[in-house]
Write a protein that binds this DNA or RNA. Structure first.
Length: 267
DNA sequence: AGTACCACCTGACGGC
DNA sequence: TGCCGTCAGGTGGTAC
């Protein structure tokens, strides 16, 4: 799940559970997700500190850890299957500890666990969040970029609009699922050329993008809670289009499967 | 600049 | 039941 809305939900979860607790130590039973650090390295950085604030940029989550020398932040990226669990005492029966990759132990017996069945994901630390974002080549966050900036970025692109929306160096946060939703609600086919859309349509895509991401966060990314008329809960080949009653179809775009409604998306 | 693959991992699912 | 191919919401690298 982890696109911008999912990561925003994780951020709020972490902020409501894990701030202002002393960190006793860190374990990394899945060290493959650690990049540029080691289990002991991460432990040395975090031990004795406490998380004080959170920040999301695109699909990355930064967690500021204060109480030691210099600024240090935990950096989390959730790959395709990652998420967080917090618990006090032992893990409940529903917690998938088999796939726990990083565990932060707080004094008093609470734990924050980064779980990722497929170890595609990233956990590290940085002393410079801005520098990290720059190194990764991330564009502005999809909820932060303004309308004119968005139109400028999209204009002059020769590739498919879907791949432009998903290009993290242009705009950070949109992935395969939400690009489908945004294009569906904008009435634009996934294989339309971004540069062919025109200013008016691009402004509409920008407005729809903001609305969709916001609604997804509000729905806590639960498809059942999405507003009516959303494609996401019907994102299945042959399903009934929630707007026109036609059939949802798929096509390949940038090596990914795009779901769309030929009846609603003609642009 | 854009695309087309491959790779990294694991699990679920359909077909035989 | 088992084996096999395919697919899955991520990014990063290479080669054309």
């Amino acid at each position: 799940m982890p696109e911008l809305p999912d990561v925003e939900v994780f951020r709020r979860y972490l902020a409501s559970t894990s701030l202002h607790k002393k960190i006793d130590g860190v374990e990394a039973p899945g060290p493959r997700v650690l990049k540029g650090t080691s289990p002991s390295g991460l432990g040395r950085v975090l031990k004795g500190r406490e998380f004080t604030s959170t920040r999301r940029h695109g699909k990355y989550l930064f967690v500021r850890a204060d109480g030691g020398g210099g600024a240090k932040s935990l950096v989390l990226h959730f790959g395709m299957t990652g998420y967080l669990e917090y618990f006090e005492g032992g893990p409940g029966p529903g917690v998938d500890m088999d796939h726990a990759r990083v565990v932060v132990d707080f004094s008093g017996g609470a734990h924050l666990v980064y779980i990722a069945p497929r170890q595609i994901g990233l956990v590290t630390w940085t002393g410079d969040e801005e520098g990290f974002i720059e190194e990764k080549g991330l564009g502005p966050d999809a909820m932060e970029i303004d309308r004119d900036g968005f139109v400028e970025l999209m204009r002059g692109r020769r590739g498919d609009v879907k791949s432009a929306l998903m290009d993290q160096s242009l705009i950070a946060g949109v992935g395969n699922i939400y690009s489908d939703e945004i294009l569906f609600q904008s009435g634009v086919r996934p294989d339309a050329k971004a540069g062919d859309l025109g200013g008016k349509k691009l402004r509409e895509v920008h407005r729809v993008m903001r609305r969709v991401l916001k609604a997804a966060v509000k729905a806590r990314v639960d498809p059942e809670r999405f507003p009516r008329g959303y494609l996401l809960p019907r994102r299945v080949e042959g399903a009934e289009c929630p707007r026109c009653g036609g059939r949802v179809k798929t096509m390949k775009a940038v090596g990914r499967t795009a779901y769309y409604c030929p009846g609603c998306q003609k642009g």
